[in-house]
Simulated scan of single mutants.
Amino acid sequence: MATNLYLVRHAHSTYSIDELNRPLSERGLADAQRVISLLLHENINTLISSPYKRAIQTIQGLAVPLNLDIVIEGDFKERMLSGEPVSNFDMAIKRVWEDFSFAWAGGESSLFAQNRGFRALCKVLKQYEGCNVVIGTHGNIMVLIMNALDQRYDYSFWKQLDMPDIYKLSFDEDHLIGVQRIWSRR
């Protein structure tokens, strides 16, 4: 029996320097309702989320109708790009994708963040084998995890993601057997 992980990149959020408590915007809240309607009939067994409010808010509408609690997994939080605000985000993020071992001061390298996220994914695969699991997470860490499974999921792939976005990853034990995009705003 396959294990299906629905990686959900959070919906649009209102910018704040408080990463942990940054909420969804009005647009994000509306998009979260579409996420719920898309996933409600996928026979979901488990809800897992990054501890960040925007990731939780994106999937929390599934909790009541499915009678499930959201399990918080800290290792699905977004990668820390830098300890300080960067003056050119596009340049800063491209640099860490070009060199997986490079990290800005106070930030995580792509390799470090990828290993963190991949360990969490492996834990979920082992603990919830044969289940359908929704994981509320973030764009960069999501694609870094996918990149650990298949290198075609790279910087260019990350750049084309929607907010929110949903990818269903299907596994036979710990072997990736399929990837399907569930969401598309376009």
Rank of each mutant, 00 (worst) to 15 (best):
157 F>V: 11
106 G>V: 09
22 R>F: 04
102 F>S: 03
160 Q>T: 14
160 Q>W: 00
9 R>S: 07
6 Y>N: 08
150 D>W: 05
165 D>H: 05
92 A>C: 06
119 R>L: 13
137 T>M: 12
34 R>P: 00
116 R>W: 05
54 R>V: 14
156 S>M: 07
46 T>W: 04
84 E>V: 13
154 D>M: 04
120 A>L: 09
166 I>E: 02
169 L>W: 05
163 M>T: 15
149 L>Y: 03
183 W>K: 02
35 V>L: 04
104 W>R: 00
58 T>L: 03
39 L>H: 04
138 H>Y: 05
28 G>Y: 04
53 K>Y: 04
39 L>F: 09
144 L>I: 10
170 S>I: 08
65 P>Y: 06
96 V>M: 05
43 N>L: 04
163 M>R: 06
16 S>A: 12
73 E>R: 04
45 N>A: 14
103 A>G: 05
55 A>C: 12
155 Y>D: 10
21 N>T: 12
84 E>R: 08
158 W>G: 11
16 S>T: 13
76 F>R: 03
53 K>V: 13
164 P>W: 04
122 C>P: 00
178 G>H: 02
129 E>P: 00
138 H>W: 07
44 I>N: 07
140 N>R: 00
176 L>F: 06
32 A>G: 11
21 N>E: 15
142 M>Q: 14
13 S>R: 06
84 E>S: 14
152 R>Y: 06
80 M>C: 12
142 M>N: 14
23 P>S: 06
15 Y>W: 15
69 D>K: 10
119 R>I: 10
12 H>N: 14
154 D>P: 01
62 L>W: 01
143 V>M: 13
76 F>V: 12
159 K>I: 11
175 H>P: 00
118 F>R: 01
46 T>H: 10
182 I>Q: 10
113 A>W: 02
176 L>C: 09
170 S>K: 05
14 T>N: 05
164 P>H: 06
148 A>V: 03
15 Y>P: 15
123 K>H: 10
83 G>D: 14
13 S>L: 12
114 Q>N: 08
75 D>S: 13
177 I>H: 00
36 I>S: 08
95 R>D: 13
72 I>K: 00
186 R>K: 12
151 Q>Y: 04
166 I>A: 05
180 Q>E: 15
11 A>K: 03
33 Q>E: 15
30 A>C: 02
67 N>V: 03
37 S>E: 15
144 L>D: 11
108 E>W: 04
72 I>G: 01
162 D>K: 08
128 Y>G: 01
59 I>D: 07
184 S>V: 08
181 R>A: 13
24 L>R: 00
105 A>N: 10
163 M>A: 10
39 L>T: 09
39 L>I: 09
29 L>N: 13
112 F>Q: 14
179 V>H: 01
144 L>R: 04
142 M>T: 15
134 V>N: 01
19 E>S: 13
97 W>I: 09
17 I>W: 05
108 E>S: 07
77 K>V: 07
47 L>G: 09
111 L>V: 04
26 E>M: 11
